[in-house]
């Protein structure tokens, strides 16, 4: 089986978000870029599967849609344990563009398991995996918190409101994964970092695409009014405020 993990290059989750040019452009000055946290967990699980089913999983590829500036993030994925990487040379403008480029990559090769994080921490589109599945007419399962290989079938756990479902599915399939899929993301070790330098990173030119959406500008959420402090010895006052002022209890 061949596994493809789709990774997004996003600002570190502690980044203070700022915009430039009349709030039309993200200010990347001083920003640390990371593998999107859900994608990193997906990659970690893919590596665990390869280790646990050495005969069954032959290769892990990571793919990213991005400009050359995303290559350090891709190299990190190789250092963690992916075998090879593909970068589609395009600055992604929306989820549809990314999904379309990924579908072209997948059509050219054959992957059995394709994993995507449930969302990216920048645009929070929660869409790429689903769009990709429909473009390829592949089955997809979303909110996957566990995956394992059982013979030629996959066994998954899907998070539903207040519970889980255990699902069986055949390959090829697209797993849209959430927290829980791997316990912690792997940290690359020195050997991994050295090996990553020589692993293949193929650059592919994008296909042209019409955009259905246009992110025209950004705003900051309204600042909250300052916090009303209540004396710790007067908890009753808090209850009074919540009941009579905020009217929430």
């Amino acid at each position: 089986m061949k596994i493809l993990v789709c990774i997004s290059n996003v600002p570190d989750t502690t980044t203070k978000i700022k915009f430039l040019n009349n709030n039309t452009t993200f200010d990347s000055a001083g920003v640390q870029w990371i593998i999107n946290p859900w994608d990193e967990l997906a990659l970690t699980r893919a590596i665990e599967l390869k280790e646990a089913h050495a005969g069954a999983v032959s290769e892990i590829t990571v793919v990213n849609v991005g400009l050359p500036t995303t290559e350090p993030t891709i190299r990190k994925a190789l250092a963690i344990g992916a075998d090879k990487a593909i970068r589609v040379n395009l600055d992604p403008k929306d989820a549809y563009t990314v999904a379309l480029q990924l579908s072209e990559i997948i059509k050219k090769d054959s992957f059995d398991i394709i994993l995507c994080g449930i969302e990216s921490s920048d645009y929070n589109g929660t869409s790429v995996g689903g769009m990709l599945s429909e473009l390829l007419d592949f089955p997809s399962v979303s909110a996957v918190s566990f995956i394992d290989i059982e013979g030629d079938q996959l066994k998954l756990k899907r998070e539903i409101d207040g519970g889980q479902e255990i699902i069986g599915i055949s390959t090829p399939f697209i797993g849209i994964v959430q927290k829980g899929i791997a316990k912690d993301a792997r940290i690359p070790n020195m050997r991994g970092i050295m090996m990553a330098k020589t692993k293949p990173l193929q650059v592919v030119e994008p296909v042209s695409a019409d955009l259905y959406t246009d992110f025209v500008s950004f705003d900051y959420p309204k600042a909250k009014a300052s916090c009303k402090k209540v004396d710790p010895d007067n908890v009753k006052e808090l209850v009074n405020l919540l009941h009579n002022e905020a009217k929430v209890i």
Binding site: Y96, A99, S127, G130, S140, I176, T213
Partner: peptide, 16 residues
């Protein structure tokens, strides 16, 4: 999150 993106492709519809 599971269905809307698939429907968007099927109907050639932009998704927000």
């Amino acid at each position: 999150k599971a269905i809307a993106p698939r429907v968007s492709i099927r109907l050639k519809a932009g998704l927000a």
